[in-house]
Design a binder for these strands. Sequence first.
DNA 1: AAACGGCTGGCAACCCTTTGCCAGCGCCGA
DNA 2: TCGGCGCTGGCAAAGGGTTGCCAGCCGTTT
Lengths: 357, 357
Amino acid sequence: MAVESSGALAPPVPAARRSPPTISDVADRCGVAVSTVSRALTRPGRVSEATRLRVVAAAEALGYQANPRARSLLSGRTDTIALLVPDITNPFFFGVVRGTQRQSAAAGYAQLLVDTQESVEVEARELARLPKSVDGLVLAASRLSDDELVEVAATVPLVTLNRDVPSVPGVVIDTTSGMVQVVEHLASLGHRHLAFAAGPVTSWSGARRWRAVRAAARRLGLTATRLGPFAPTVESGAAAADATLNTGATAVVAFNDVLAIGVLKRLRERGVGVPQEVSVVGCDDIFGADFCHPSLTTLTAPVESAGRVATDMLLDQLGRGTGRGVPRAQEVLPTHLTVRESTGPAPARAARPRSRS
Amino acid sequence: MAVESSGALAPPVPAARRSPPTISDVADRCGVAVSTVSRALTRPGRVSEATRLRVVAAAEALGYQANPRARSLLSGRTDTIALLVPDITNPFFFGVVRGTQRQSAAAGYAQLLVDTQESVEVEARELARLPKSVDGLVLAASRLSDDELVEVAATVPLVTLNRDVPSVPGVVIDTTSGMVQVVEHLASLGHRHLAFAAGPVTSWSGARRWRAVRAAARRLGLTATRLGPFAPTVESGAAAADATLNTGATAVVAFNDVLAIGVLKRLRERGVGVPQEVSVVGCDDIFGADFCHPSLTTLTAPVESAGRVATDMLLDQLGRGTGRGVPRAQEVLPTHLTVRESTGPAPARAARPRSRS
DNA sequence: AAACGGCTGGCAACCCTTTGCCAGCGCCGA
DNA sequence: TCGGCGCTGGCAAAGGGTTGCCAGCCGTTT
């Protein structure tokens, strides 16, 4: 016992804790077989009420709790799901974590959180390892190829988030049609030249956003220039802002809010008026988008809902769903444009490329 | 075998996946005993090199991976640690999650993330349940009593974060002495009346912050009024702001940044100039504190470091530490005041209580 | 040539729980 | 009174891997 200081020399390992009571301790204590204890605790009608009470009392007295590892060895179930995100630093994923956490907890599942560090290798390694430890996976913004994902999905229940792979259940936030709203908003404000500050090249949703912006711009007769790629961090926003100014665009649409906030910061440092000289639009509506300065016009994404829905879909696959309705294979969540202070009318004369101050 | 569709009726469960190869499959394939396979894969010197190579080749060919559940049943180890936070919604804990996640991943541990929802009951329930599933726990901002924590720590390796319990290893962020800096900063700006917007009553660190503010204010001859408690959310900031204005204080120190940002928001809505009429100070320096408007003067807490250090201390207890230096029992991390735009000289005439516009 | 010892690999117990199968018992009806 | 049946509880296997102990083999030493 490590609690009492035995005087001489303390063991290197702090505490040698007594092992918790097992099912056979309970069985011994009330003179029945272990199988009876197991049934008394898990199969209500299977043993007599008298026996059940004795067993329950003994279990209570000993503080017995079934060892979930032993249980899962036989049942194959761990009551745990894993959430993989590319970058836990990104506030977008905080929302996802919240949504999945709340929903899985409500269903009695624990959640393993894994950061794949934007790395294809780490992601692949974890996907190979995790199925042994969890019942299912929610895979947010995967960097893997469609084929790889199909293969994984054949091994373990899997739901993707913001990644649409045919035949793999998933939920995507529909930023594509949202981007159309963004471009229309900017067009109606008189902007003719847009810049798009792209995110990581491996980002599936990033690619979709750019395509949507480009298509909408073309349709409305605007020009759109793609810049980047930029890391989705506040720091990278500086580079994105500078690149934007070089293009002479009067409005910049950023891959996401983190980048957009970085752009705002840099523009302020350079003395460029937002939205007087340049309008800035983000994507996601993360924590902070409403209280940054100027507050950010952005495409509001139901991030937490997406996490919840993805978890629901996974629980459906695990046979633990809410039971209402048929299991969903693909889910698309709508976005809406939230106009705040960072967008405004295009300057009377189109901005010209500015050299760095 | 469920893989072949037996024609008649499809199983209700979507995909019955073939069970992964076991150690005995590998043993059969290369004609050795399972014990030899086990040793070949885990005890480098215990079998001949020739045998080892044959086993490794067979395992490779079959795609064999040891079942961690079976392994943990005997070894007792799960290579998983749990992080319990009161509210996953709070950006402060994002930093903690980041720190623990990165550090545990680096040591080969998976991380279970548990949200106790600011509830003593949920926290107690999880603490009773989790030790069976994980090797150790990092417990952030626990709401439990000292005695309860000591009891839990006797059962399972445990490190607290922002909660100092004698005899339980922990890391605390030293906001106490930081609060002295805050009060001195405000005093030097000429403020005479402070308000403190308190957080949840069960928050240990919140209580310490208030005591530090009160003591420092008394020493410097200022008055300090405690307001609240307020929930640590942006929304609650409105109530905190209103309460502050009622007191006539010229500066408000908020329990944390989330609350402070809410205060800023409300003051702007009410047309109260910050810092011209009221100065606002937060605590933690969360994501957003630097780009809110006005940017927030706050006590910068090394949140991510705290998560890392706590995880290190836990790994030490698990005998998996980095090995450098002695295991630490208690760690105190310093904070520093980051002055931004939300604090300024006290108004010439002390503000008087304002009625709601 | 015999004894000894080191290296290698197999046997079987063990970790803890669940569950299929079976046996004993008591009760009921015939 | 006896057969049958339902209820209850026990035995043992299973789940996948680890490890203490032992045996066989081969090489070395006396």
